[in-house]
Amino acid sequence: MALGLKNVQSKENGNRRSFLKWLLGFGIFSTIASVLIPVIGYLIPPERGSTAGGGRVLVGTTLDIPFGMGKVVQLGNKPVIVINTPQGITAFSAICTHLGCIVDWDAERQLILCPCHDGLFNPQTGAVIAGPPPAPLPPVPVSLEDEEIYLGEA
């Protein structure tokens, strides 16, 4: 009889103890979570617009980029290569698809050249002609009004 009562008590104590342990664990967990959530949110950098407010951006005139020439300009925080070709003005992302170097205009060969590993791109299509780049340069919408060159969608 006495033994039975003791067993019941120790079982109750065990339940209480495990409940308190669970409560303590829950408290610690929720504290850590409620601190970590804002901290992680803070650590993730917010998006910044790539073009200034969207729309079209005037990047120069055909006087800056005469026929047969190309130039790297800034569109928001992204570099863009603008080329004045016989088929008209073209523009591509200037970030080489190989390892992220900035491509430049090779006036002698009339090609887009990446100086890092000699990747060559077609100035009309952005396609890879030679070298290690795995993909063509993505095109950027470009338009010409009189002599002014605009980048971005209208």
Partner: peptide, 9 residues
Amino acid sequence: SDVSFGWLI
């Protein structure tokens, strides 16, 4: 104004 929870921190 731009960073998440930046105002809080």
